[in-house]
Design a binder for these strands. Sequence first.
DNA 1: TAAGTTTAAATCGTATACGATTTAATTCGA
DNA 2: TCGAATTAAATCGTATACGATTTAAACTTA
Lengths: 205, 205
Amino acid sequence: MLRDRVKEYLLKQIQRNNLQVGKTINLAALARQTQISVTPIREALSQLEESQLIKSVPNRGFIVPELTMSEAKNLYETVSQLEILALESAAIDERLVGKLKKQQLLLQQAHSPLTRLNERFKFHDLLVENCQNTVLMRILDTLKSRIRFYEQLLVKDASFYENSDNQNEGIIRAIEEQNIPTAALILKMNWMLVSDYVVAQLQKK
Amino acid sequence: MLRDRVKEYLLKQIQRNNLQVGKTINLAALARQTQISVTPIREALSQLEESQLIKSVPNRGFIVPELTMSEAKNLYETVSQLEILALESAAIDERLVGKLKKQQLLLQQAHSPLTRLNERFKFHDLLVENCQNTVLMRILDTLKSRIRFYEQLLVKDASFYENSDNQNEGIIRAIEEQNIPTAALILKMNWMLVSDYVVAQLQKK
DNA sequence: TAAGTTTAAATCGTATACGATTTAATTCGA
DNA sequence: TCGAATTAAATCGTATACGATTTAAACTTA
């Protein structure tokens, strides 16, 4: 269905940092870009509205929502808890540690802020890769898409990643030792680190 | 916007148990019922699809998803955790205990399974009434809408409510004593009670 | 020159048209 | 009579039309 294709397209645009906060999505332009007429485009955008990735303003159209401190706090609080739940309910697979280490290397070798951010999200996705709760995973995916807007705009500082990298290594070590409560605790601290950083950056604006 | 009105209408229909599991939503009929043309109806249904309350099947339309054991388990696991998070982060207001007691009375006086179910959901909504995390509350609302399908169809037995009522009273008592960890624990047990009951009923089918 | 007003163009949200697909009803053959 | 084939009707998903609203451009006035 065309609606699904448009939604996929827009989610990819989000990952590539091609949807700017505050920007109105021009339906005619998007129809030309995708060669799909506006009806399924509107349906897809309505879905993204439901996910809070897009908001609609009557007679003005679909707009990428501005960033707010309260939303940031709420998002990070919720994601943190849900990701811990997913980690705790996932089957730990012995190849996971290898994958995490490899991913952490990729993260550290990333050259641009956007690549680094994407690798960081992949690291988190790996942590919960084996979680079988599809309801939970779907919610997490959606929330993380919204979080991308915050981090794409606000997390550029390489020094931030040093602290985060240390925590990621701590998480890997804990998982290697099958010590899930410690992994969960460090994971929570990691999300708090990002949350505090994002909130501080928002306060400067 | 008409899309929002259709969505509200359909969410109300869900609460009233007027959307049957497995039923295909007839767009022309809904357009006649609501006096709204199919374009905003499809947009609203696309949104409900995004929430997993409705699924779309190509060339057949929008259908209320069947109930499954795995979805039930996943839903209850996730709702339980999120509601506990919301309870723990809510400001406890001294009028809350009074409201909960009153609501519990309404629950116990309800004459029909559907009324009783709706009162039970209101009880749960009251528990988290003061939670300021709008991201979390929105997710909870959506998940609970989906859970209604399970409970409308499967939870009819009055004896189930006796156990649930006892737990509700335990939760009220714990909150009255400002003992949130205990309230959270009983709340978790309450969701497990429902989950186990629903899963058992599904197993009979 | 800046602010206000008017006009023109662009865009939005909804209704409607229409080809494709599914469902229902009817017919045919064993 | 039952199952398969054919026909008809209903419905779906998408494209397009169009009135309403917003935005942009042009004009006027102080």
